[in-house]
């Protein structure tokens, strides 16, 4: 068991080379843009990296990233919790699904900017506004992921577990929730990214501290290198949360898929 886990992690780390190759192409295009437009419009990737390292030298900046990440995670957790619960309910009951569908369209249709304005009026310029915006932004995706997972479950397994003598609660936990993971995990990944983006935007607009406020001051000072460095940092923190938290959980839950694949195409 431990061996397969180590092998999985090793394979995953090794696959980072491919990711690095993709990022290098991106950096090359970035460099091209820099050479065309000059440092003022678009600083070179290397310059940005240097200013990012400079930012990281200051513990205060670590705190700021922590603040933003904490807000995004609070919003994400709320979205994951409510979205999953509501999605499971809607997946079981077509009537609730029909009632919920238009609300989801409504939630998706309202631009995040509008939410920020409303939240600022309701919660003031603080962490609450930022987390709530992140939650609202991530909720519809999680809801749809969970609802689709339940609606598309294998009903044969329900009958089977009833024949084995399981009650409704154990059936939900052991059979249904297990099956929704497949559609829930991509939704959670997307919701996490959305939560980070929405919180930085909310911080910038509400001037609520964190990375967003730093971006705002970089804009005010026309400091493009600093702005790009902050963007890099927020992307890095998102990647850290996704690959440090979400993907390991997913790999653990979906280990059977790995073994179901024929040899040679393990990814």
């Amino acid at each position: 068991m431990l061996g397969t886990r180590a092998a999985r992690t090793g394979r995953f780390l090794w696959s980072a080379w491919a990711g690095m190759a993709g990022l290098s192409v991106f950096a090359a295009i970035w460099q091209l843009g820099h050479e065309t437009y000059g440092s003022f419009i678009l600083p070179a990737p290397a310059e940005t990296l240097v200013s990012m390292v400079g930012l990281l030298a200051d513990p205060e900046n670590w705190r700021l990233i922590g603040v933003t990440a904490a807000r995004a995670l609070v919003g994400f957790s709320a979205a994951a919790l409510f979205g999953t619960a509501a999605g499971v309910l809607a997946g079981y009951h077509p009537a609730i699904m029909r009632l919920a569908r238009p609300q989801i369209t409504l939630l998706l249709g309202v631009p995040p900017i509008a939410w920020i304005v409303l939240m600022m009026i309701w919660f003031g310029n603080g962490a609450g506004t930022v987390a709530a915006t992140a939650a609202v932004a991530g909720l519809p995706v999680v809801f749809i992921g969970a609802a689709e997972g339940i609606a598309g479950r294998d009903r044969g397994l329900d009958d089977m577990s009833r024949a084995v003598g399981l009650g409704p609660i154990s059936r939900l936990v052991r059979i249904a929730l297990r099956q929704i993971l497949q559609s829930l995990f991509p939704a959670l990944t997307m919701a996490l990214g959305t939560a980070f983006k929405a919180s930085i935007m909310a911080e910038l607009l509400a001037n609520a501290g964190g990375v967003g406020a730093e971006l705002a001051s970089a804009r005010a000072n026309l400091d493009v290198a600093a702005a790009l460095a902050w963007i890099l940092l927020s992307v890095a923190s998102l990647i850290a949360v996704e690959y440090g938290l979400l993907q390991p959980v997913r790999a653990e839950a979906e280990a059977w898929r790995e073994s179901a694949r024929p040899w040679g195409v393990k990814r």
Binding site: G156, L157, M160, S161, A163, V164, R174, R178, W256
Partner: peptide, 23 residues
């Protein structure tokens, strides 16, 4: 049943053991 109706995420041993889950 007509189809095996096994849980794809569980090993054969865990699938067999599922028959005891209520007992």
């Amino acid at each position: 049943f007509q189809e095996p109706r096994l849980m794809p995420w569980a090993t054969a041993a865990d699938n067999i053991a599922f028959g005891l889950v209520a007992h």
